[in-house]
């Protein structure tokens, strides 16, 4: 119950920060700083893939409602929610992630490198899919590539800052407790 409440609050905070802080920053037309999808990355290891995708859809749809453009962010979120379990399975030895820690972080994934790789790949996929859908009608491939690269770089920077500031205390959980 406490866990659920934590995730609901986190969901609301991510949406509000994204819409009312980051979307208001007009750095350049090329760059949109996105961090709200960190919510998906921070969801527990144990979550099944189908509920994961449904929650991701809900998150994306909330962002879309504020931008009055339904579908774009929802599609990108569903994509990274679908890819996340594959990546985690690839990066982490199965038994560690299943039992000891609750959600992905530098500590629980057994190294900053592995965690950052996960975040980088998912950030890139999210941005690429989002801008691909948006740029569908324009068909300007270089614009699309540069925009994806720059936005991914800015997102990564923000995510690293968020990780450093907000220290999620990850308890080491054992089966005996």
């Amino acid at each position: 119950m406490k866990e659920l409440l934590k995730y609901i609050v986190r969901f609301a905070l991510f949406v509000l920060v994204q819409v009312f802080v980051l979307d208001k920053i007009h750095l350049h037309q090329m760059i949109t700083p996105y961090i709200y999808f960190l919510f998906i990355i921070w969801l527990p290891f144990k979550m099944q893939r189908t509920p994961l995708m449904l929650v991701a859809f809900l998150l994306g749809f909330s962002i879309d409602s504020f931008r009055h453009n339904p579908g774009f962010h929802a599609a990108a979120c569903v994509l990274i929610a679908y890819i996340r379990p594959f990546l985690i399975k690839m990066l982490v030895a199965q038994d560690i992630s299943e039992t000891n820690y609750n959600e992905p972080s530098a500590k629980s994934m057994g190294g900053t490198g592995a965690y950052l790789f996960l975040v980088l790949v998912l950030t890139f996929l999210h941005n690429a899919w989002l801008f691909f859908l948006e740029a569908w009608q324009f068909g300007d491939i270089w614009y699309f590539i540069v925009k994806t690269m720059l936005s991914t770089a800015i997102s990564m920077l923000l995510i690293i800052i968020v990780e450093l500031i907000f220290n999620r205390n990850q308890k080491f959980r054992t089966n005996t407790a």
Binding site: R49, T50, M53, L54, F57, G60, D64, N69, P70, G71, F72, A74, A75, V78, L79, Y82, L133
Partner: peptide
């Protein structure tokens, strides 16, 4: 293939929303 089907369905729904709107 339940997960894959859900994934494809959700993506299709998103694209439907985009095109429709």
């Amino acid at each position: 293939y339940f997960n894959l089907l859900v994934f494809i369905l959700l993506q299709a729904f998103c694209v439907f929303l985009i095109v429709q709107y």
